[in-house]
Amino acid sequence: MKTFSQIIGQKRAVDFLKRVISGDRVPHGYLFTGINGVGKSTAALALARAVNCTSDTTGDGCGRCITCRQLSSGNFPDIMSVGPDGQNIKIEQIRELNRGLNYKPVSGRFRVTIIERAETMSEEAANSFLKTLEEPPQGNIIILKVVDQRDLLPTIVSRCQRVPFNPLNRDVIKGYLVEHHNQDESTAYLAAGIADGSLGRAIEICEEGFLDNRRELIELLIGLFDMPGDQVVETAIGYGKKFSKKGQEDKSDIDLYGVTGIWKTCLRDLLLVKVNGNCDMIENRDYRERIQGLAARHDADKLIEGFFLVDSYQRDLLRNPNTGLLMEKMLLELKMLSS
């Protein structure tokens, strides 16, 4: 059962949606922006419940009417979802969507259509979708989910009500992991730091195996500083192949977003120690002595460059690049900075 009250740390977005829904005229197009794992999907389903519930006045759905029961069981017929078929949302998918939107809602007051990763629409698909967005058939609400609105056509953005979902505060994520996922304070703090504002990502991090892989990756980053050039190239190619072959459905190993998150915490620790010599605030406390040693050997400007280099690669991931090639390039560029 997805409701607005379940969304953590997004009060402004939730209050705005409740206020709009309670009005006489509900916008037909919404653009939910923000990184993955901050509540966009939950908000989309909560909106579907709120606009279709037959008894509720609070904005969260009554939980008892037939619509709420159908939504809770996943059997509500008036929710549609479109996402990438391979790398892109194709024109054929949008044409099929357009045909479906022409029918009246089956059960509810509104049909709610969710466009996952809307930025992956091909040019043809985007232009076709724009026509639908300009004048959708009555009884339809369309929600586009995207990390950054700049990846969409400006004409699509201008026809939607934008609702930003911000990265979550680290303490909010930590508290949620401790209270709802039985994590100890230390693990929750570390996971929240690696997740970089994403509650969904933090929950994944706490799954079995992720934090064990963290040690291997920190050892790789630390070892990179002293690794011979030819070995760096060999290592980069090996890890590049590993991430190229890794399927998205494989949860047994860490993904590249997790790699960059872990390396950012490590580089931040190095900077903290380099700048003020204080180890009390570092995240990777089990690497305290090695971090102190490395910080003493490296220039602060180079460490800052390294941090922003990894951060830029992490942001590039949101546009779904070739992860294997990206891993190779990142390792080689980090080595060049440390030389």
Results as ranks from 00 to 15, higher is better:
11 K>M: 05
9 G>Q: 06
47 L>C: 01
49 R>D: 09
42 T>P: 00
50 A>G: 11
31 L>H: 04
30 Y>H: 07
32 F>R: 01
32 F>I: 03
20 V>N: 08
10 Q>C: 14
35 I>M: 13
35 I>W: 05
16 F>Y: 09
43 A>Y: 01
39 G>K: 02
46 A>D: 03
51 V>I: 09
24 D>A: 15
30 Y>I: 05
3 T>R: 13
8 I>G: 02
6 Q>K: 15
4 F>W: 15
17 L>H: 05
19 R>N: 15
36 N>D: 12
38 V>H: 07
19 R>W: 13
5 S>N: 14
12 R>P: 05
36 N>R: 14
13 A>C: 04
36 N>G: 13
17 L>Q: 03
4 F>K: 14
13 A>M: 04
35 I>H: 05
19 R>M: 14
32 F>M: 08
16 F>R: 03
9 G>S: 08
43 A>R: 01
5 S>W: 06
5 S>E: 13
11 K>T: 09
47 L>G: 02
3 T>L: 08
41 S>N: 07
29 G>I: 00
18 K>H: 06
41 S>K: 04
49 R>Y: 10
13 A>F: 00
13 A>I: 01
7 I>F: 08
41 S>P: 02
46 A>T: 04
6 Q>P: 10
48 A>L: 06
4 F>M: 14
15 D>W: 09
6 Q>Y: 15
12 R>D: 11
6 Q>M: 15
22 S>E: 14
26 V>S: 04
2 K>M: 15
48 A>T: 11
23 G>K: 02
44 A>I: 01
12 R>F: 10
35 I>P: 01
24 D>I: 10
39 G>D: 03
50 A>Q: 06
45 L>P: 03
31 L>W: 01
35 I>Q: 10
14 V>K: 04
29 G>A: 11
25 R>M: 15
45 L>S: 04
23 G>Q: 08
28 H>V: 07
46 A>C: 08
46 A>E: 00
19 R>Y: 13
45 L>M: 12
24 D>L: 13
25 R>K: 14
4 F>I: 11
39 G>A: 06
33 T>S: 14
4 F>A: 12
12 R>H: 13
40 K>N: 09
47 L>P: 00
16 F>S: 03
49 R>K: 15
13 A>R: 00
17 L>C: 10
47 L>F: 00
31 L>D: 00
26 V>Y: 03
34 G>K: 11
13 A>Q: 03
25 R>V: 15
18 K>T: 01
25 R>D: 14
21 I>T: 10
41 S>E: 05
7 I>C: 08
38 V>P: 02
24 D>W: 08
42 T>Q: 03
31 L>R: 01
44 A>G: 00
23 G>M: 03
49 R>Q: 13
